[in-house]
């Protein structure tokens, strides 16, 4: 694709890939060690796209899921962008006990959906925080986060709101598949960096590899 060759060299992409591998490996290890959440993160893949192409791309990526929920969280630093966690519908239910085993009691109608949604946000917050946090740490940056938000709730796939992204932006999309070992829940994590952090990212990647080699 044009964008890819234009903006991000293959070598840079390889470095980014390697960096993500390290970051996500550390994130998973620390999640297990520190808070006993066992998550497997697949080898990430990287794409450079126009933001306008994102909804279509995401749709294609998640075509195996029937209904989905998406948690969005923005991160700010020099490394800047949005993280999207895509869960299959009903994942929140399966994850409630992951966070709080005592919560397995019965609920009033309505309350359960709220709990499910809140659980998705909390799991999203933890997972996104760990992955993005480790990445930015390796890149020598510190980021802060917006509160997580459920932007799509149990919708049939295909309804990824077009207005989630500024269409003019170039985005680096980093995709990984995550799986909670004990809960049989899988989903996707997409990190979309904004246009203005790409220049910085290229420099940070160069610094990273220099330090690494």
């Amino acid at each position: 694709m044009d964008n890819e060759s234009l903006l991000v060299a293959d070598e840079e992409r390889d470095i980014l890939q390697e960096l993500m591998n390290i970051a996500f490996g550390k994130a998973a290890a620390e999640l297990a060690e520190v808070i006993s959440i066992f998550v497997v993160l697949s080898v990430p893949s990287i794409k450079v796209l126009k933001a306008a192409q994102l909804p279509e791309y995401l749709q294609e990526e998640i075509r195996d899921f029937a209904d989905i929920s998406i948690v969005e969280q923005n991160f700010w630093g020099r490394f800047k962008g949005s993280a999207f966690l895509v869960f299959p519908a009903g994942a929140g239910k399966a994850l409630i006990s992951l966070l709080d085993p005592e919560h397995e009691a019965t609920f009033e109608s309505g309350t359960f959906e709220v709990l499910e949604k809140e659980t998705l946000m909390e799991v999203g917050n933890i997972l996104i925080g760990a992955c993005v946090g480790k990445m930015s740490e390796l890149l020598g940056d510190v980021v802060t986060y917006s509160p997580p938000k459920v932007v799509v709730e149990n919708e049939p796939r295909g309804i990824i709101p077009k207005n989630l992204f500024d269409p003019e932006y170039t985005a680096i999309v980093m995709r990984t598949v995550f799986r909670f070992e004990e809960r049989d829940v899988r989903g996707f994590l997409f990190l979309v960096t904004t246009h203005d952090s790409i220049v910085w990212l290229k420099k940070a990647l160069a610094a990273f590899i220099e330090h690494y080699e």
Partner: peptide
């Protein structure tokens, strides 16, 4: 509680932010 301790640890380890909503 496990939830509170988990949040403290993830804030201290990952630099996460934790949100304790009234609803949950």
């Amino acid at each position: 509680t496990p939830a509170f301790i988990r949040s403290c640890k993830s804030v201290l380890t990952f630099g996460n932010f934790s949100f304790f909503s009234q609803k949950l």
